[in-house]
Structure formats: structure tokens, C-alpha cells
């Protein structure tokens, strides 16, 4: 039941998460920060702007991105196979990238290509993480993972750390906010969207928060308090990292993912498989 509610209300809950994040970020910088409902104010304001677009394909892809992102979340929460949910996320990336590279704006195209670099960094790791969860739980079913008696985090510490460091790549946080890079390419894939069309991307990002933190929650197994604790810790850690670090080059990101995160996660999986 709760998963149906979470799926249906994902944009709203995601909006609150984003609002909290902006406050947390501001407090970390000794600022007051915007009110909690700020994302929704932005949302309503964007509804009131005159719709402008480059061409219909571009605007359409923004909307498809939102739909695909929401559908990926539905697959994750209402379906039962984690691996399928991971692959569904690629559809959202497809819509985003096709949209972003369909305009002749250098920033947008650069952002699209960097988005692809993000994908090769986190996609294999997500697959590996799901397999690692399978190794502990014995099932790819999200319900079995959530009913697991033990503590998956204790058996998969390295996988969890690897995933924790992957979250900035998925949510576009510093040091890996390479595709968005607000000071450099001004939002990358989202730059050309304006008014109501930008709204689709803006809310799509909120849904992605829920999508990513659901995976973090799974590391708690059936101990929901642990899952919540992990989500909160991960949330704080990501924001701290976002505030404390500068942006890296995309090469550094790919090297970091392939040279450090994936071997680390694989090591954990190998050792665990041998142990069992």
C-alpha cells in the first residue's frame, strides 16, 4: 500500500525532499535558505510563464523524460524485479539525451554527451549492486529484500560505500555534477527548456531523488529504522560532499567509477560469494 502511495505522490514527496535539501544546503553554508515549500513556489511560477520552445521534439522529450522517470519509479516500487527497474532508468536518460542533443546549442549538446558519461559511470555499478543484494537476499524481488531478516549493509559495506559515491553522479551533485555544471554549462541538458516545459525536467529530477534513495533504503533489509537511518545519513553525506567539493573533470569521474568504485564493489561481491 505504501509503495502505491509513494509512487503516486512521488513528485510531491520528491519536491519536499528537494525543499529540505535546499534548506540543509543553506544551513551548511551558514545561510537561512529558502522556505520548505520553495520548490512548489517555483513550480507554480513556472506554470505562469509564457511557453517558449526551440522545437516541438525538444519540448516533447522533456515531457517524455518526466513520464519515463515516473514509470521507472513505478517499476521499482510496484514491480518486483530490481534489475528491470535499473534498466528502465535508461529510457529516461534516452529521452533526456535525445531532447538535449536535438537543439543546436553547444551547452545543451555538451551536457547531453556528458550525461552519457554519467551513464557509463553509474550503470554498471547499479547492476553490480543489485546482484550483490541478490547474493545476500537470494532474490531480485524488492519485497523479499524488504522482508530480509538480516542486515544487508553489514555484508555489503563496500558496495554501499561505492553506491554512496555513485549517488552524486545520478543526482548531479558536486563533485560529479558534470552534466549539469551550473557555473560552466548552465544546466547542460536542461538549459533550453523554459516555462512549463522546464517544469517537466524540474519535477523529473525530484522523482529521481525518490528513485535513488529507495535503493539506499534497501540496504536496511526488513529493519526499516535502519533503512531510514541510512537514507538520512546518505542524504546528509551527499549534501555535505556537494558543499565541500569542487567539480571534477568527466575523465576523472569515469576513471574514479571504473578504477575505484567498480573494483571495490566487485571485491565485496567476490569475497561474499566465497564466504557463503
Amino acid at each position: 500500500m505504501i509503495n502505491v502511495i509513494l509512487t503516486l505522490l512521488a513528485p510531491i514527496i520528491g519536491g519536499f525532499v528537494y525543499g529540505i535539501e535546499r534548506i540543509v544546503k543553506a544551513r551548511m553554508q551558514k545561510r537561512v535558505g529558502p522556505p520548505l515549500l520553495q520548490p512548489f513556489y517555483d513550480f507554480f511560477k513556472l506554470m505562469d510563464k509564457r511557453p517558449l520552445m526551440i522545437h516541438s521534439l525538444h519540448a516533447l522529450m522533456g515531457i517524455m523524460y518526466f513520464i519515463a522517470e515516473w514509470f521507472a519509479l513505478a517499476v521499482l516500487l510496484l514491480g518486483n524485479d530490481l534489475l528491470i527497474a535499473v534498466f528502465f532508468h535508461v529510457i529516461a536518460v534516452l529521452a533526456l539525451v535525445i531532447g538535449a542533443s536535438s537543439v543546436r546549442s553547444p551547452y545543451s549538446v555538451l551536457g547531453a554527451l556528458r550525461e552519457l558519461m554519467h551513464m557509463i559511470s553509474y550503470e554498471p555499478l547499479m547492476v553490480l549492486m543489485v546482484v550483490a543484494l541478490f547474493l545476500v537476499v537470494g532474490s531480485f524481488d524488492i519485497r523479499d529484500v524488504l522482508a530480509y531478516e538480516g542486515y544487508p549493509i553489514l555484508r555489503l559495506p563496500l558496495v554501499f560505500i561505492a553506491f554512496l559515491l555513485t549517488i552524486p553522479m545520478m543526482l548531479q551533485k558536486s563533485p560529479f555534477d558534470i552534466a549539469e555544471a551550473h557555473q560552466e554549462i548552465i544546466g547542460g541538458p536542461e538549459i533550453e527548456y523554459s516555462g512549463p516545459f522546464y517544469e517537466a525536467l524540474y519535477t523529473g529530477k525530484w522523482i529521481e531523488y525518490i528513485y535513488v534513495f529507495t535503493f539506499v533504503f534497501l540496504f536496511g533489509g526488513s529493519h526499516y529504522w535502519l533503512g531510514v537511518l541510512l537514507v538520512i545519513l546518505a542524504f546528509l553525506f551527499i549534501n555535505l560532499l556537494d558543499n565541500a567539493s569542487a567539480r571534477l573533470d568527466f575523465r576523472a569521474m569515469v576513471k574514479f567509477a571504473w578504477g575505484f568504485l567498480i573494483p571495490m564493489a566487485a571485491l565485496n561481491v567476490i569475497l561474499l560469494a566465497l564466504w557463503q
Binding site: L57, V90, L94, S101, S102, V103, A112, M119, E123, V131
Partner: peptide
């Protein structure tokens, strides 16, 4: 598993790259 995950990611970005070029237009299709 790493091979399959990585290979499919690489193939996806290959196709997206090619498609991205063929839909590019300054304004108004």
C-alpha cells in the same frame, strides 16, 4: 556481470550519440 552491465551501457551511449546527431536542428522542425 560487469561485462554485461558495461557493454550495454556503452552500446546505449553509442546509439544515443548517433540519434542525437540526426535530430539536431536550430529551431522549428
Amino acid at each position: 556481470i560487469i561485462y554485461v552491465g558495461a557493454g550495454s551501457a556503452f552500446l546505449s551511449i553509442l546509439y544515443m550519440k548517433v540519434l542525437g546527431i540526426s535530430v539536431r536542428k536550430a529551431h522549428g522542425i
